[in-house]
Design a protein around this nucleic acid. Sequence first.
DNA 1: TGACATACATAGAACCTCAATGCATCATGC
DNA 2: GCATGATGCATTGAGGTTCTATGTATGTCA
Lengths: 108, 108
Amino acid sequence: MFEKDLVAATSRTFILSILTEGDSYGYEIIQHVAALTHDELIWTDGMLYPVLHRLEDSGCVRSYWQPSSTGRKRKYYALTDTGRAELEERKRQWHLTNDALSVLWRNP
Amino acid sequence: MFEKDLVAATSRTFILSILTEGDSYGYEIIQHVAALTHDELIWTDGMLYPVLHRLEDSGCVRSYWQPSSTGRKRKYYALTDTGRAELEERKRQWHLTNDALSVLWRNP
DNA sequence: TGACATACATAGAACCTCAATGCATCATGC
DNA sequence: GCATGATGCATTGAGGTTCTATGTATGTCA
C-alpha cells in the first residue's frame, strides 16, 4: 500500500510525463502507471479524473473527444507548453530531492 | 520554490533518514535539510515541529531533553525500531517511484 | 540594551484528497 | 435478451492535512 502523500505528490508528474510520449486518455493512463510500478500503484477513477481536471484548469493539458476503434467515446489529453514547463520544474525538484536523499542513504 | 506536495511527501522520509546518522534536534535538522538541498528546501519551525510531533505520536521517534554545551535546552529525537521500519518502506516506495519515473524520463 | 541566532510550540484557516457512487456502453457467454 | 465484466468518464463532500503566523524563551555579540 503506497503512502498517500507520495501518491499525491507524484500524480501530476506521472501524468505529465506519460503525455510527453503522446496523447492519452484516462483509462490508458491508469493502466500505464500500474504497469510502470508492477501493479503496486493502482490509481482509481476517482483519484485520476480530478487531477486531470485540475491539470486542464491550470492550462497544463488540453482535452478533446475522439471515438475509439470500437465506437466508444474517449477523452484524450494532450500536453501544452505550460505543462511541459511544469514538468521540467517538477523533474528538477524531484532530482534535487532524490540527490539529497541519496546522500543520506549512501546511494551514489 | 518547492512544490508543497513534494515537501509534504518527503518530510517524514528526510527526518527519519537524518536520524539514522544519529540523534538530532529540530534546529539542526532544518539546517541539515537546507545544506543537503543547497538551500532550496528551507523548512520553517512551524512546518517541522508538527511533523516531529506526529512522528513521535506514531512511535517512529522518541525524544529527550538535553542541555547544549552553551546551556540551552534542546529536545533531541532518536529513531525507534518502528521508525526504522517505516523508513525502509518509504525508501522502497521512493525507489519504485523513482524507477518508474526514470523509465518515463529515459534516465537509466 | 538591542539585534540576531538559536530553540521549541501551537492554533486554525486554508487547502487537498479520493472513496464512494453514479452513469454509459461495448464484448462475451449462456 | 440478460448478466457479467471490461472499458470509459464524472462528481461530491467527508475526512484529513498542512504550515503560516504568532508566541515564548534564551544565549551571543556589539
